[in-house]
Computed example of a mutant assay.
Amino acid sequence: MQTFYLGVACFLLLTMIVGLARVFLGPRQEDRLVAVQLFGTTGVAVLLLLAAAFDAPAVRNAAMVFAVLAVLAVMAFVRDSRKNDGRGGGGAGG
């Protein structure tokens, strides 16, 4: 089973390499955001597979931290893009 986990982790790393092209080529900021989300979710999946393959609970904990950081990165991007659009971040009324 360990070989299967490592094989799937390698496949997911290849998808991350393909997504790297989207980060550099764009063409829009939203495309780059989706690629960064791909890195976040795929990175978490790779870490969880490695944790299962090597029976390492500390790696599982690191994966959960990366999952939270990915959400925070998206929130920061959305907040920054709203500022740049001139709509501001005044909540529902503003």
Rank of each mutant, 00 (worst) to 15 (best):
A58N: 07
L49S: 01
P27K: 08
P57C: 04
A45M: 14
I17H: 06
V18R: 00
R87C: 03
V36D: 02
D80A: 15
A67P: 05
A21N: 09
G94N: 07
G90M: 05
G89W: 07
L14E: 00
L13M: 03
R87W: 12
T15W: 02
F11I: 07
A73G: 04
A63P: 00
G7W: 01
R87Y: 12
V65Y: 08
Y5G: 00
D85C: 15
D31F: 11
A52R: 09
K83L: 11
R60N: 07
Q2K: 14
V44T: 04
V36R: 05
G91R: 06
A51V: 03
L20A: 14
V44F: 05
V68A: 15
V8M: 03
V18L: 09
A51K: 07
V71H: 05
S81L: 10
V59P: 00
A76S: 06
D80S: 14
C10F: 04
R22Y: 11
L49P: 02
A76M: 07
A58R: 10
M16P: 00
P57R: 10
A92Y: 05
Q29F: 10
G43L: 05
C10S: 10
L47N: 01
T42L: 08
A51Y: 03
V36C: 15
S81F: 08
V36L: 15
T3F: 11
L20V: 09
D80C: 11
R32T: 07
L49G: 01
R82I: 00
A56E: 09
P27M: 04
G26P: 02
R87D: 03
M16T: 01
D80T: 11
L14Q: 00
R22N: 13
Y5F: 11
R28I: 09
R60K: 14
M64Y: 15
M75G: 02
L38Q: 13
G7D: 04
R79Q: 08
V68G: 13
V74K: 15
G86P: 01
M16N: 03
L50A: 02
L12C: 03
V34P: 01
A35V: 05
A51S: 14
G88L: 01
I17E: 02
G89E: 06
R32I: 06
G19N: 12
G19S: 13
V44G: 00
P57F: 05
T41E: 02
S81W: 09
V68H: 09
F24S: 12
A51D: 03
V36F: 14
V44W: 02
L12Y: 03
R79V: 06
K83R: 14
N61T: 15
M1V: 13
T42K: 12
G88D: 02
V34W: 10
R28E: 10
R22M: 14
G7I: 03
L12A: 10
V74Q: 12
L20Y: 12
Y5R: 03
D31G: 14
A45P: 00
D31P: 09
L47K: 04
G26Q: 07
A52E: 02
K83M: 08
Q37L: 14
L14C: 00
A51C: 05
R32M: 07
K83E: 13
A35W: 06
F39V: 04
V68N: 08
A67T: 12
L6A: 01
L72K: 06
M75W: 11
V65K: 11
M1S: 13
F39D: 01
G43R: 07
P27N: 08
V65I: 12
F77A: 09
